[in-house]
Design a binder for these strands. Structure first.
Lengths: 117, 117
DNA sequence: TTAGGCCCTGACACCGGTGGAAAGGTCAAA
DNA sequence: TTTGACCTTTCCACCGGTGTCAGGGCCTAA
């Protein structure tokens, strides 16, 4: 499948698909004409990428996370890898909590500022 | 007072002070040599700017807000202006609430993702 | 052969506050 | 007069995912 079809199937723009590839999240064979050729797994992969992006993870984190999510690693390797994943996500969760806390503090500051104004 | 002293008194870098000026938040006379010369009110102004920045307002919003905060406008003009200010801040507050809500949704998504992993 | 649709790479722009470098002018004290 | 601290402006970089443009190759049907 070429990039246009993958784009249609996933809703990701051509630009985004090439970006995911540049970030190491997505791979493609190349035809003799240089066109990217995706296999049918690509659709699921792109959907997973976009889900994780929506959640708020960076491509950097997603690159770490994806092999486990996709179940690429078999046997014991999979388990230890996913333990690492859990650690990464936990850290990410903590970061998010920090951001939320900060925003809430700002919100309170603004609200009291508003009350005084 | 020159920029170095204002910087020392407020903790804002030279770079930031010039940026605030470029954004229309801060004004300075110019000496014959072209140096910026600040009056003593500048210290308070810069502190107010940084407070508002810390709260999470953009320079754009701060530019709108500042004249009221500084009490520059006298009499009835001040009051109506500050009503407008209240409206701006309320909108800003709503935006913040949206951001917080979004982040919290992401956080939940991530947490449940983590629980499944 | 040409039109039109598909694909390619590379590069700039966005946002917003800050850091930093480059290249130069000013001024006071030694 | 020289040193060194202080000031000036202008420009690039950061972050990160996406839009968009330029300039070009490929392929198929008319």
């Amino acid at each position: 499948m070429l990039i246009g079809e993958l784009s249609r199937l996933t809703g990701a723009s051509h630009r985004s698909l090439r970006y995911y590839e540049a970030q190491g999240l997505l791979t493609a064979r190349r035809g003799v004409n240089g066109y990217r050729e995706y296999d049918e797994h690509a659709v699921a992969t792109v959907r997973q990428i976009r889900t994780l992006l929506d959640i708020g993870l960076s491509t950097d984190v997603i690159r770490t996370v994806l092999p486990c999510v996709r179940g690429e690693l078999r046997d014991p390797a999979h388990l230890t890898w996913c333990d690492d994943l859990r650690a990464v996500l936990s850290r990410e969760l903590a970061t998010m909590d920090d951001r939320i806390t900060g925003l809430q503090r700002s919100r309170r500051a603004l609200a009291s500022y508003l009350a005084e104004a």
